[in-house]
């Protein structure tokens, strides 16, 4: 199985972030990211088809705040901001996974994507664990860090 994390994963995420959220990210080495990150969100989305797996994101909350401001015109202090932040991060993952699957598998296979699952606040230990995972990739959006991991199994 080829390495599906590099270069497509980080670059696809940055391209989608720019198109969906008018935000600019840069793929970086994980050594450029903090070993610990407080105030962090997690989103997971799974897919099934000729291959199956998951896409996981851990991101500083600041990214969701900027996303809802750019896309929905919401201030982080707005009443609906909490729910909107989770929804917007979920949609960002949905679009990223759709683009990623086309990039790595071509335009013929059909994949079913699960609804994204978003946790608005995770234990900082989860960041510390995921950043050490060899398959995890890093992105910086301005100064806000993101971790991404794409897993795949050959048979669904």
């Amino acid at each position: 199985m080829p390495d599906l994390n590099t270069p497509p994963l980080s670059q696809v995420f940055c391209d989608v972030l720019e198109n969906v959220g008018f935000m600019f990210g840069d793929p970086v080495e994980k050594s450029d990211l903090p070993a610990e990150q407080a105030n962090c969100m997690r989103a997971i989305i799974s897919y099934r088809g000729p291959m199956s797996g998951t896409l996981t994101l851990l991101a500083a909350r600041a990214i969701a705040d900027e996303l809802i401001e750019n896309v929905l015109g919401l201030d982080p202090d707005d009443e609906e901001a909490e729910q909107a932040a989770a929804d917007a991060i979920g949609e960002l993952m949905n679009v990223t996974l759709g683009q990623l699957l086309t990039t790595v598998a071509g335009e013929e296979p059909v994949f079913d994507l699960s609804p994204p699952s978003v946790d608005r606040q995770i234990d900082p230990a989860e960041w510390a664990q995921m950043i050490q995972d060899a398959e995890t990739r890093g992105v910086l959006v301005d100064d806000a860090p993101v971790l991404l991991k794409f897993t795949t199994n050959a048979a669904a």
């Binding site: 759709g98 683009q99 699957l101």
Partner: peptide, 9 residues
């Protein structure tokens, strides 16, 4: 309106 890029779909 979807993320899907599958020509088959």
């Amino acid at each position: 309106v979807s993320t899907e890029g599958s020509a088959t779909r």
